[in-house]
Design a protein around this nucleic acid. Structure first.
Lengths: 355, 355
DNA sequence: ATGAAAGCGCTAACAC
DNA sequence: GTGTTAGCGCTTTCAT
C-alpha cells in the first residue's frame, strides 16, 4: 500500500483518517492499532502503547470504517429487519425487546420498511442481503403468502439465518415465533362462557382464507369444547370492511336471538363499532360484551377486554432464535408459540337476563 | 476472535461467488462484469456480453456485496435515521413519505432505534457514521438538548449532512424541519374563540422548559392577539403526570370561573381525562370543548378536534433537505416550518350559556 | 469493447 | 509485543 508522499498534504484535507494514519501518529504499526481498537487480548498490548494509540485516535478524529471491517472479517454483526407497519405498539414492543436481547451479544438491529407482501418487501430483503446482514427477521402477514417463499429460499441458499415473526405459517421453512392463537381465542371464549354467555358471535374476515386462521379456528374449537350451540361469524363469508362489519353487528343485535357477546381476531375490528354504536345504540358491557384481540392501544383506551399476545416475549424469543442459529446453523428448525394472556377490562360482564 | 484454520477448506465451499467468478463463467473480465452490473454507459457493453454476464450471475446465484462496493467508491447510498418511538402514526407517516422521496434518488433509509436523549442515541449516531451512511436524519425531542450538540458537531466534522425533524431548536446548527407550532396553537385558540369561548385553559408541561415551547407560546400569543383576559395553564408550574393533569382539569371545571375549553400541546395529554372524566362527569363538547394537538390516532378515535402537523409533509421535506445538501454541501442552512392544519371534529362546540 | 491493476480501510495469520 | 503482508469484493482509471 503506497502512502502518498507528495500529494499527502492535499489529500489530507478531505480524506478521513484511517488506521494507517493513526499508526503513523502513534508511531506504531497498523496491526497494533487494530489490536488496540478491537481490544484484542491475544497479543497483549502494553498500556503505554494503548494510550498512545488512543491519543492518536482522538487527535485525528479517527472513526473506524465498518464497511472495511466487515468486509475483512466477513461479519457485519447486524441483523436486518423488514418492518411493515410502524404505527402500532405491538410492533414497537417487539422491536424493543428484540433489540435488547440482540444487543447483549453485540448485534445491531437494522430496519428497513416495506409493506408486507409488496414487491418492495422482497426488494428490501435483497437489500439487506447485499448489505451482508448476518441474519434477517421478518414479520409474516396475511399477504405474505405470495412473496415470502421466494426470498426465503434465497436466504437459505446463502446460509443467512432468518426468523419469521407473528406467524408460524412458514414454520416448515424457517424458525418462527408467533402466538398460540388457538388457545388465545379459546381463552376469550372461555372467559365469556364463564360469565354466562352462550351466544357469542365472531367478527371474522375472509380477506384471506388463511388470515390469522388460528384465531378463527380457535373460535370453532371453543364452540365445540364448550358445547355451545351457536356459531355466528360476521364477515367470514364475504369481504367486508369494518364499517360494514359494525352495521352487521348492529343488525345482529337488533335481530332475533341476538348474540350477547362478540369476539374478534383484532381489537381494531371493533373500532368503528365503538366509535359509532357503543354508548349510543348499545351499551358495553350492559347490552353486549366485547373481547378484542391483541391488547393493543385501542383496547387499553376503550377499556376493552382483550387477548394479549405478549409482544415483549415474541421479540425476545425471536432474538433468541437468531442468536441460537447464528451459533449453530444446523440446529433443528424451531417453532415457538407464545402463550397469550387474557386481559380483563370493563367490556365484559354477564349477559342480561332474557327479558 | 480466532477463525479456525482447519475448517478453511470447508468454508471455501460456502464462499459466495464474486465478480471474479462471474467473470470466469461468463468468459470476460472483472471490469466487464462490473460495467454490466452497474449499467455503465461509458464503455458500451455489447448485448451479447451483457447477456452472458447476466446468465453467469443467474447461474452462480451471485449477489453483489454492498460492503465492498461502498468501500470502493466511497458512497453507501443510505441515509441513517434514529428512531425513538415507533408506537405512533406520526412517526410512521414521516418515515413513509421520507423514504418515498429518498427512493426516487436511489437512497435507502436505514433505521436504528434509540430512546431520544438516551446515551444510546449518541451511540447509534456513531454506529451510523461508522457504517458510513451518507446522511443522518434524527428526531428532535425534549430530552435531546443535552446530547444532541455532541454528535451534531461530530457529523459536521466529518462532512456528513444531517437533518433534524420535529423541532427547529437546533436550526442554527443543522437543517431542520418542524411544524409552525406557534401558528398551530393559534389556530386552535382562534377556532375556540370564534365559537364563543373566552375562558380557554392550556394543559401544559414543565418537564422541560423548552419542551414544545412554540405550542405554549402560541397560547400566550393567541391570548394577547385575541384580547382574552384569561390565562390558565395546567401543569406549567410544576411537574405533573397525565393523571394529575386530568384531576386538575376536573378541579378547574368544578371551580369558580371554570374554563369552557381546554387546549393542549399533545392529544395524548387528554387520554386520561377522556377515559375517566369525559362522558361521565363532564360531557364533551356540551360541558367543555377540547382541542388536541397532533391529529394523532387518539384524536381520530375520540373524535377530537386537533391541530394536525402534516407528518407527510415533514417527511417529504426532510428528504428534500437531505437530498439538496447531498448535492451541495455548502448551501445555506435551511429551517422549514410546515404549516399546520386544524382538523375540526366533534369535541368543540360553543360554550354553554352562563347559568 | 475489454482487460490489468491500483486502491478503498481493515483484519489476522505469520514472522520477528 | 510489534511489524509484514495477504486478502475481503468491488470500482475505476488507463491501456489495449
Amino acid at each position: 500500500m503506497a502512502v502518498d508522499t507528495g500529494v499527502e498534504v492535499e489529500k489530507r484535507k478531505k480524506r478521513k483518517p484511517n488506521v494507517f494514519d493513526v499508526a503513523r501518529v502513534a508511531g506504531v504499526s497498523q496491526t497494533t492499532v487494530s489490536f488496540v481498537l478491537n481490544g484484542s487480548t491475544t497479543p497483549r498490548i502494553s498500556d503505554a502503547t494503548t494510550k498512545r494509540v488512543l491519543a492518536a485516535v482522538e487527535q485525528l478524529g479517527y472513526r473506524r470504517n465498518t464497511l472495511a471491517r466487515s468486509l475483512a472479517h466477513g461479519k457485519t454483526m447486524t441483523v436486518g429487519m423488514v418492518l411493515s407497519s410502524l404505527d402500532d405498539d405491538f410492533h414497537g414492543v417487539i422491536l424493543r425487546t428484540c433489540q435488547e436481547r440482540l444487543d447483549e451479544q453485540g448485534y445491531q438491529l437494522l430496519y428497513v420498511q416495506a409493506a408486507s407482501g409488496s414487491a418492495r418487501e422482497a426488494l428490501m430483503v435483497q437489500f439487506l442481503l447485499e448489505h451482508r446482514v448476518d441474519a434477517v427477521i421478518c414479520f409474516a402477514h396475511e399477504y405474505s403468502t405470495y412473496i415470502v417463499p421466494e426470498w426465503l429460499s434465497g436466504m437459505r441458499d446463502e446460509g443467512v439465518p432468518g426468523v419469521m415473526i407473528d406467524s408460524t405459517r412458514f414454520a416448515s421453512m424457517i424458525d418462527s415465533v408467533g402466538s398460540d392463537d388457538i388457545d388465545g381465542m379459546y381463552k376469550a371464549m372461555k372467559h365469556l362462557y364463564d360469565l354466562g354467555h352462550r351466544r357469542i358471535a365472531l367478527v371474522s374476515d375472509n380477506w384471506q382464507p388463511d388470515l390469522v386462521p388460528d384465531r378463527i379456528s380457535g373460535y370453532d374449537l371453543a364452540i365445540e369444547r364448550l358445547g355451545i350451540d351457536y356459531n355466528v361469524q360476521v364477515g367470514s363469508d364475504r369481504r367486508m370492511n369494518d364499517i360494514e362489519k359494525s352495521a352487521e353487528m348492529a343488525r345482529l343485535l337488533d335481530g332475533p336471538e341476538p348474540p350477547t357477546a362478540f369476539v374478534t381476531y383484532n381489537d381494531y375490528t371493533f373500532e368503528y363499532f365503538l366509535m359509532n354504536y357503543a354508548g349510543t345504540r348499545f351499551r358495553v358491557p350492559e347490552d353486549v360484551s366485547l373481547v378484542g384481540y391483541g391488547n393493543l392501544y385501542l383496547s387499553r383506551f376503550a377499556k376493552l377486554t382483550s387477548v394479549g399476545q405478549r409482544p415483549e416475549e415474541i421479540g425476545r424469543v425471536a432474538a433468541e432464535c437468531v442468536l441460537a442459529r447464528l451459533k449453530n446453523p444446523d440446529r433443528p428448525l424451531r417453532k415457538v408459540e407464545i402463550e397469550t394472556e387474557l386481559v380483563v377490562r370493563s367490556s365484559t360482564a354477564p349477559p342480561r337476563p332474557v327479558s
